[in-house]
Design a protein around this nucleic acid. Structure first.
Lengths: 153, 153
DNA sequence: GGCTGAAATTTTAGACTTGAAATACCTTGC
DNA sequence: GCAAGGTATTTCAAGTCTAAAATTTCAGCC
């Protein structure tokens, strides 16, 4: 455990741990700010906004399992959130013909309209929170974070 | 809205949004992996591990409010987690003399020992997950993420 | 047709999380 | 001293989240 290579490996591992802790804190910081703004301005939670956002991107609707895969959360989780969005009239479940096990979820017109309002302001909030980064820095981080995701087989 | 400067501002805002989405996904990806490993290997949740980690760094103990501030979560949240850690015998609450409102939480000897085991393996897991990054890349990201946090007044 | 295993979703139990209210205590100004 | 306002923590209701079990349906095979 005393040669230079092992030494460097140890340092690298520690540095990777530091990165993870930074990622954790950065995420929590941004999330906390956005959650409060969303709640005050629109009375909506972040998980619901995330689901609306995914559904807005796929106007034809998504299956429950596609939705949970895209959001990287469990199936049971989206069941509850979609239940509430449905109760609020922002989303609806429709049958998938040819497979009676599956459900397609899509935005209602009201959901489309409400999301459009929120999304516009959401973007300006994010812009404000990440104000300190210029284009080069943004590109750097986006590229590296994207690789992080791709690295996970 | 047609001059070059405004155009660039719009692009920057979109890019910042992209960064936030990347951050979200990267966080979720790492967290999901670590959660499962922690659960299978030690039967412990990530929130509990986080609290143990903070307490391990401050062996004299932390007040509940210091703990919640360091972890960037609500007060009510740490109350529940510390309750459970206490029930498991890993942490204990002790009175703060001079202020009967406050509580100091610290690890028990068992908590110290158990955490040491977990922390060692946790580090190797993080090392594995962030395997794809070399020292320069780690430094870059750490520096930028650190600045993100500092930018929030 | 009927059986078997897989797939999509929901249900369930338990934990985590927030924001707000409640409780208990402290501190300051008078 | 004591009232008023502030601080530390807990409690509470509602929502989010996971992992595992349960349901329902599908698809292939005999």
């Amino acid at each position: 455990m005393n040669d230079a290579e092992t030494q460097s490996e140890q340092t690298l591992a520690k540095q990777r741990l530091r990165l993870w802790l930074r990622l954790l804190r950065a995420h929590r910081s941004v999330e906390n700010q956005l959650r409060e703004k969303m709640r005050l301005a629109y009375g909506v939670t972040l998980p619901r906004f995330d689901v609306l956002s995914a559904l807005d991107r796929y106007r034809d609707g998504l299956r429950m399992s596609d939705l949970s895969a895209k959001l990287m959360v469990s199936n049971g989780n989206v069941t509850g959130i979609v239940d509430r969005l449905e109760a609020e009239g922002l989303a609806e479940r429709i049958a998938v013909d040819g497979d009676r096990r599956a459900m397609r979820v899509r935005l209602t017109q009201d959901g489309i309209d409400r999301f459009a309002e929120m999304a516009a302001e959401h973007e300006t909030w994010v812009d404000g929170v990440l104000d300190g980064f210029d284009e080069a820095e943004l590109d750097t981080m986006i590229t590296l974070l994207k690789r992080l995701e791709e690295d996970q087989t």
